[in-house]
Design a protein around this nucleic acid. Structure first.
Length: 560
DNA sequence: TTAGGGTTAG
């Protein structure tokens, strides 16, 4: 049979209606095979017409054709849905999927293999589960690898690694796509799932997919995020030609695990190997000269990172860099960014204000704040509303708001902000032999608590001889003077430092501690004395900035 | 003859 030449849409209409009548006829007709063959060839022609219009990106035109067709084959529904999803229109894709369900269109494995992605894109977990149920009822979860990996990926994206794992266990024929979804899931949500992550790695090795470069980098990231940087390094060594993404993943992993110096070394090796870093590598590495050398100072992220140099980097080298008044460059850089027509975002503004604050550039800080706000009070109210909108605002957000209130004398709002974060208990972390130990004030839970307290008492005795006087102004609770002194002695940072001193006698090893809140004035003075009596360097990163204590002095110049 | 995963940032 020849198909008459008609306009595009009419042609499609003709094809589909012919297909439908042919399909209807096939039930009455004795020549069923012939009819169904003709039917499929017609449907193919239809999709050949409709699919390219979707693939070329003219999705609206494709939809128009789709809507006007008298009969739509499941191919067309699927093409339409997958086009929506790949064009970042998951909502529309799901809309069509739901219409298919309501209209009683027969859903097939192609429908499900793309629709789960739309659920995870939109964070629709309940709808996703319902879709999962439907695929089970239709027998597609079991029979089709595409459907299954779509489901595993969806659960992994939702962070429901247990469900993802359960589903993948059921798959007899695990393929590389399934493994990738699992590995990426574990690397992003798997802080408590290291055993499973390792297990998956084992399975990947067994199934022969290990050499795939992409999954290797994911493995590297997975181990780094779980704190096993040694394993990341081992994986990295096996790369014959690591690219800039691989390098960046390793460097970011090292920084995350507190190995800044090694990260810097790796960064230098990377440059020596002629791997050009991009703004992502640099925004972590935070190296000013590199940023300007590669012309990346126009990039807003690199710019923000550059300005943020103060707050984040824990390496001695960077600290001394910061001490040389680098903070003065922050406002200049900020202004040149604006001159270039780059709109600063909230991170840029926060960073530049932080840098001004750290360098005592009050005037510059106020000026910058003024340029971004016309009506300051209203802006502050908006800021407060914004903070409240954030699902679970953390202490950093509230503190940012608080500093803004301070700047504008907004006492009432400041009180509200203070009330939100004061509940956070003070905690300190210390890294000893690549293991992180956590301490809270008066903490007796550490297995070596008794020895830690002995070390601490001895230290207090020694520093008192050098002139340390407990400053009880930093105890806010209402109690008698002696008790106040005792409570100061057991602040979390004092416990963490005592533990580090107990564990390592090597004078060259720098002690690094982290604290979730700001270091208090008494501890600050105490730590300065401790560097004198122990001859050790101590680096403390608190919630606000970074303090480098050495020979009885601190890099912040007692201004923080 | 319509389908699935992919590492890095403040």
């Amino acid at each position: 049979m020849t198909v008459p030449r008609l306009s595009y849409l009419n042609h499609l209409k003709y094809l589909t209606s012919t297909a439908q009548s042919c399909f209807d006829a096939s039930f009455k007709n004795t020549s069923l095979t012939e009819a169904s063959q003709f039917y499929s060839s017609l449907i193919q022609q239809c999709n050949k017409l409709i699919d390219p219009s979707l693939k070329c990106g003219s999705i609206n035109y494709g939809r128009k054709l789709f809507d006007e067709l008298p009969n739509r084959h499941v191919f067309m529904w699927n093409s339409m849905i997958s086009s929506y999803i790949s064009h970042k229109k998951s909502k529309e894709g799901i809309g069509l999927y739901e219409r298919m369900v309501l209209d009683g269109v027969y859903l097939d494995e192609y429908t499900f293999s793309c629709v789960f992605k739309a659920f995870s894109n939109l964070g629709l977990i309940n709808e996703g589960r319902r879709g999962h149920g439907l695929s089970v009822v239709l027998g597609l979860e079991v029979s089709n690898a595409f459907v299954r990996s779509g489901l595993v990926d969806m659960y992994a994206k939702f962070g429901r690694m247990k469900d993802a794992r359960l589903l993948s266990n059921r798959a007899v024929d695990k393929d590389v796509v399934l493994f990738m979804s699992l590995i990426v899931g574990y690397s992003q949500h798997g802080d408590d799932d290291l055993t499973n992550g390792k297990l998956v790695h084992g399975l990947v090795i067994k199934s022969g997919y290990e050499p795939a470069v992409a999954s290797q980098t994911s493995l590297l990231t997975m181990y780094a995020r779980c704190g096993l940087i040694g394993d990341s390094l081992r994986i990295f060594k096996r790369f014959p030609n690591p690219n800039h993404v691989t390098w960046t993943s390793l460097i970011v992993g090292l920084v995350r695990n507190g190995r800044e110096e090694l990260a810097l070394t790796k960064f230098r090796i990377m440059i020596r190997n002629s791997i050009i870093p991009n703004c992502l590598t640099l925004s972590r590495k935070q190296i000013h000269t590199m940023v300007t050398k590669f012309g990346l100072d126009r990039d807003i992220y690199a710019g923000a990172a550059l300005v943020n140099l103060y707050g984040k980097c824990g390496s001695t080298e960077m600290a001394s860099y910061a001490q040389n008044g680098f903070g003065h460059e922050a406002p200049e850089l900020f202004n040149s960014m604006k001159e270039l027509g780059l709109e600063p975002n909230e991170v840029t503004i926060l960073s530049v204000l932080l840098a001004c604050n750290n360098s005592g550039l009050v005037h510059e800080g106020c000026q910058i704040f003024a340029t971004i706000t016309n009506n300051q009070t209203t802006e502050l109210e908006e800021a407060e509303a914004l903070v409240k909108q954030v699902g679970n605002p953390d202490v950093v957000l509230w503190r940012t708001l608080l500093s803004a209130c301070k700047l504008h004398g907004e006492v009432e709002m400041a009180e509200r902000a203070v009330n939100k974060f004061k509940k956070n208990p003070a905690m300190s972390w210390v890294d000893v032999d690549r293991e992180v130990h956590t301490f809270m004030a008066g903490d007796l839970s550490h297995p070596r608590s008794r020895e830690i307290n002995e070390t601490l008492e001895k230290l207090i005795g020694k520093v008192k001889l050098l002139g340390y006087v407990p400053d009880t102004r930093f105890v806010l609770q209402d109690m008698d003077e002696e008790l106040k002194k005792r409570s100061l002695y057991y602040h979390s940072e004092k416990l963490a430092i005592s533990f580090a001193l107990l564990m390592s006698s090597n004078k060259n090893t720098i002690i690094r501690i982290f604290k979730n809140l700001r270091v208090c004035g008494d501890c600050h003075s105490w730590i300065k004395f401790v560097t004198k009596v122990s001859g050790r360097e101590i680096i403390a990163r608190d919630a606000k900035r970074f303090h480098h204590f050495k020979d009885g002095l601190c890099s912040c110049g007692d201004y923080w």
